[in-house]
């Protein structure tokens, strides 16, 4: 059933169209940077973007930072929100459940397909970013400079980049869990997607308010940008570990709720 769901997801043109649109923004930003040679001022713009003109090898990280606040979560929410509610709205859910596989296996298969989409999407954004960075900008393949001003070997830089990509993927799991949970509550994929995005917009808004600082450590978007901490020297693990733990709690609780809801609800469509 997992293989079936994976094939279904990645054979769907909509999936690749989503990934293509997601990469359009980093491509546009890279072209504009090359044409104008104007990097964002310090403190402005996505992380690493101001450093790209000095070292194009950092563009995969800048590309992730460009899509991380909005485009990437939208893509993940669309796919995850469609997973159960999409079958229900198309009238195919009852036929899927007619097979002896059971609801839990179907939910697990849908979950794994969403996880695969998250990972593939993040890798493609980083890969496209690398190609852009090394072809359009001056890249420094020998060594790099950490955010703290120390030199990083190619092995260091590569290892930290892989860890950052993994961290961004983990950060998106919370979005996927929200959308999957909402997808079990409604027959409308749009409703599930919008529900997950509403949570994220609310979280991002609350994070900017000093009055909301007591609940800030629990906001799902609180630690998203902590992938930058992999490039400090020494690595600043504090927010990274908290980000992973927070996503773990959200994913665990929401998937448990999705399972409890999906295995007990009446399937009418």
């Amino acid at each position: 059933m997992i293989a079936v769901e994976l094939r279904k997801l990645f054979r769907r043109p909509r999936t690749w169209a989503t990934i293509a649109v997601l990469n359009a923004l980093p491509v546009l930003v890279a072209v504009l940077l090359v044409l104008t040679d104007l990097a964002p001022r310090p403190g402005e713009g996505p992380p690493f973007l101001s450093a790209v003109l000095r070292n194009g090898a950092l563009y995969p990280l800048a590309a992730l930072a460009i899509v991380l606040p909005l485009f990437l979560p939208i893509a993940v929410a669309v796919v995850a929100g469609d997973s159960i509610a999409g079958e229900a709205s198309a009238g195919t859910l009852r036929y899927l459940l007619a097979r002896p596989a059971g609801r839990t296996r179907l939910l697990v298969a849908k979950l794994i397909a969403v996880l695969a989409f998250v990972l593939v999407t993040v890798l493609i954004v980083a890969g496209v970013g690398y190609v852009l960075g090394t072809t359009l900008f001056d890249a420094q393949p020998v060594t790099g400079t950490s955010v703290s001003g120390t030199s990083l070997t190619p092995a260091d830089l590569g290892g930290r980049t892989l860890m950052a990509i993994g961290y961004v993927a983990v950060s998106m799991l919370g979005v996927a869990a929200f959308a999957l949970f909402f997808s079990t509550l409604t027959d409308s994929p749009l409703g599930a997607t919008m529900g997950a995005l509403a949570v994220l917009v609310a979280s991002s808004l609350l994070f900017t308010l000093d009055a909301a600082s007591p609940i800030a450590p629990y906001l799902p978007t609180r630690y998203w940008l902590s992938f930058v901490d992999f490039f400090r020297d020494p690595i600043h693990w504090r927010d990274i570990t908290r980000g992973i733990a927070l996503q773990g709690v959200y994913v665990g609780v929401l998937l448990a709720a999705a399972w409890a809801n999906f295995t007990t609800k009446d399937i009418t469509s």
Binding site: G43, P47, V147, S148
Partner: peptide, 24 residues
């Protein structure tokens, strides 16, 4: 540390170095 950068002050015997990542 900030979301996208870092400013470090390294103190030594004669004074200090201030490193600003975003300005390199």
């Amino acid at each position: 540390i900030s979301a996208g950068g870092e400013t470090g002050v390294h103190r030594d015997l004669m004074g200090s170095w201030a490193w600003e990542y975003e300005r390199a």
